[in-house]
Amino acid sequence: MDNEELVLLAGATGYLGTYIAKELSERSMKTKIIARNTKKAMQFANNNTTVINAEITNTNTLKGLFEGITTVISTVGITRQKDGLTYMDVDYQANKNLLEEAKKAGVKKFIYVSVLNGKQHRNLKIIEAKEAFVDELIASGINYSIIRPNGFFSDMKDFLDMAKKGKVYLFGSGKKKINPIHGKDLAIACVDSINVSNEEINIGGPDILTQNEVAELALLASGKPINIIHIPHWIRKSILKILRTFTSSKTYGPLEFFLTLMAEDAIAPRYGSHRLVTFFQNEIDVLKK
């Protein structure tokens, strides 16, 4: 890795961003972290890492921050709309603000984290905004890496939350497969991609599991008997239709995303060493302390 690298990281206080901040620090890479909540981000400050207060939805707060930056890494996005901001305000426009400042400053590389199969799911509100930014990034002329994970271990906590109550609910047969990835492994791939040119990287974890198997792991970690309830897909489709008809995108956005992707395989090239079974057990152990 070039010792002259100066990385600007946006989104450091989120699940993945936290691991990327730690990975950059472990590699002793000079880093600027921009955050709205600097108090939360100060945990990453050290000799190589500076934390700067900025509001990425407000371009005035970004001016001058990109001087000398060679690489921008953005994990910026919202799962649930809040503070009156929409997916297009954050996942698209805020990232576009970063990209515009990067272009002005002559930044060499821009790394952005989207989602696996995003191009096929532009009809979903969350993904529509992410892929609109992907289009901007590809057209920008800046060397890019677009990282496309198929799901984080943190997303799998939904299975664990159900398991702790003794039942896991799945749509359909539960035979759809996924290989989610731990934030630590994904962070390594993101930082490594600094040396990659104009690529979209599909990535998942080492274990390809059916939803039934994920549910079983969650129940076993919780010390519960195997109790999986399978709900017919027609009910899932009905819920989707009702949500889209009678609620705003603020309400149905994350549910639409979840209900759609639960109905299909999400298998990506295997990467990393962290196992879901260990993650579940660690989560349970933390609760016991």
Rank of each mutant, 00 (worst) to 15 (best):
D155H: 11
G166Q: 07
E131A: 10
D158F: 06
F133D: 03
F153K: 02
K167Y: 07
D155G: 07
K164V: 05
Q120P: 04
N150Q: 09
G151N: 04
N143W: 12
D135Y: 06
L160P: 00
K125A: 15
E128N: 14
S140G: 01
I146T: 05
G118A: 10
L160E: 00
L116V: 05
N150Y: 06
Y169A: 10
N150C: 15
G141I: 04
Q120W: 12
F153V: 05
V115E: 13
F133I: 02
L116F: 14
Y144R: 03
F133Y: 11
K157F: 02
D161H: 08
E136S: 12
L160W: 00
I126R: 14
S145A: 15
Q120V: 09
V168W: 00
A163T: 02
I147M: 09
E131I: 06
L137Y: 01
A132Y: 09
I146V: 15
N150I: 08
S154C: 00
K119C: 11
E128S: 14
S145F: 05
R148C: 15
N150S: 08
K119Y: 13
H121Q: 12
V168P: 00
S154E: 10
M156V: 02
H121E: 12
Y144I: 02
R148S: 12
L137Q: 00
K165T: 12
R122P: 01
G141N: 03
M162E: 14
E131V: 09
G151R: 04
K157M: 11
E128A: 14
I138K: 15
E136N: 09
N117Y: 14
E128H: 15
L137N: 01
G166A: 04
A132V: 06
K130A: 05
